[in-house]
């Protein structure tokens, strides 16, 4: 369960978040959409405890996220970064099981490698990929490895930061299907940041639209296309004119 209560955040003179509230109950999948630079990634970083909000509180499964002690909540969270963020110097299996090799929960190398291979199979990759390095993988494979890393250890919450950016339509569909399958089989709460409306409908049940630091619209993803809300209409139709300031 994710609770974001009245979050405010300012960088320099720019107010990025202005009283954001989001609630995602256990097992739900929520997509956060909005214009680039609108503060969506800042919300994810606040959820991870990487950035401290100026005001407001965030709870993960009723435990308050603390910037000073992010470890209290991080063990419950898996994260898929926009650019995959795989460690270049480590082979795929060590990337996937990094938290069991270097983090607080220890596994032997043999067990970690087995666990990595199991998770590779979950994302549709062959065991042979385990010994490769990130530089040897295509963009789609990197995303799948990053997805395997996000789900290892059965987190209760998974955060996706633009999971299909830069991928071709076929790979986008593959990643979306994998995310949907994972959400359904693992009973996890997910929060996805994306610009891709077709992805929103494929991988999430609920949607929130963020603009100028505020949530302008919330609803079911299937209601998105038929919505008469001016913010939603402008965003999904890519119109220049409307309440969303695109300059």
């Amino acid at each position: 369960m994710i609770e974001i209560k009245n979050i405010h955040k300012t960088f320099g003179k720019q107010k990025v978040l202005d009283g954001v509230n989001i609630f995602a109950h256990q097992g739900s999948s929520t997509a956060l959409i909005g214009t680039s630079g609108g503060g969506k990634s800042v919300i994810l970083k606040i959820l991870l405890g990487l950035i401290e909000p100026d005001e407001g509180e965030v709870f993960i499964d009723k435990v308050k996220v603390s910037h000073r002690e992010p470890g209290r909540t991080l063990s419950r969270i898996g994260m898929l970064f926009q650019g995959s963020a795989l460690f270049d110097s480590l082979p795929v299996w060590q990337n996937i099981c990094f938290k069991f090799l270097k983090g607080t929960e220890k596994l032997s190398s043999k067990d970690a490698k087995e666990l990595a291979i199991q998770n590779l199979e979950k994302v549709g990759l062959n065991y042979k990929v385990a010994n490769k390095f990130p530089a040897d993988l295509s963009g789609g494979m990197k995303k799948r490895v990053a997805l395997a890393r996000a789900i290892v250890g059965n987190p209760k919450i998974i955060l996706f930061d633009e999971p299909t950016t830069g991928l071709d339509p076929i790979m986008t569909n593959t990643i979306n299907s994998l995310i949907r399958e994972i959400v359904e089989t693992m009973d996890v709460t997910t929060l996805t940041i994306t610009h891709d409306i077709s992805s929103v409908q494929q991988i999430s049940d609920n949607v929130a639209l963020l603009d100028s630091g505020r949530i302008r619209w919330e609803g079911k993803s299937k209601e998105l296309k038929g919505s008469k809300d001016p913010y939603v209409f402008q965003f999904i139709n890519g119109k220049h004119n409307g309440p969303i300031n695109v300059n």
């Binding site: 992010p70 994260m79 926009q82 650019g83 963020a85 460690f87 270049d88 990094f98 938290k99 270097k102």
Partner: peptide, 15 residues
């Protein structure tokens, strides 16, 4: 590592 979010990834992996 910083600009490719690998430092953030380290933190999220409890390191």
């Amino acid at each position: 590592m910083k600009v490719t979010e690998q430092l953030d990834a380290l933190t999220t992996l409890s390191t």
